[in-house]
Amino acid sequence: MIKIWSMKKNEDAAAKRRPKTSAAQIRVQKDLTELELSSTMKTHFPDPTDLLNFTLTITPDEGMYKGGAFVFSVNINTNYPHEPPKVKCTQTIYHPNVDLEGNVCLNILREDWKPVLNLNSVLVGLQYLFLEPNADDPLNKDAAEELRKNREQFIQNVKTSMRGGNMRGVQYDKVIVQ
């Protein structure tokens, strides 16, 4: 005979142990189901039970960063969507809007964040940075200066950095795939 009462008791105990699902988790769950990832973006959840921390790999298929694989960490805190996700590049890359520590300058990740935006907006915004690096609001001033003054040289520098080259004493990570 199935012991229904003891089963129920076990269930209750399990529910107590399980931490309450937070508002942020519920919202992230909805965001993830609505995510429209193009073939140039991939998410990876190191801990499948933790939806609030994952990595995003962008492999641009056009533009000057084509051929590279850029890995970002995405950390969502429990105040989401009232606070933006924290996004960092895990590699040392040469980009006017990403500094050498991996901090990303993207308006919707900072001053222009609003809670009606979702993860899709963030991922599309990140992808856009690789298609259109923006010299006007730089985190890496040298890269921005080069992009503004000498676009050809900038493109050369991007290529050198992506191969894992060393420029001005900075060792860049090799991000070329294949």
């Binding site: 508002a23 969507p81 009606v116 979702n118």
Partner: peptide
């Protein structure tokens, strides 16, 4: 609701 994405007829997460 644009903030929590739960239907208006539902309730906010808290």
């Amino acid at each position: 609701c644009g903030i929590c994405r739960v239907p208006y007829e539902g309730c906010c997460p808290s």
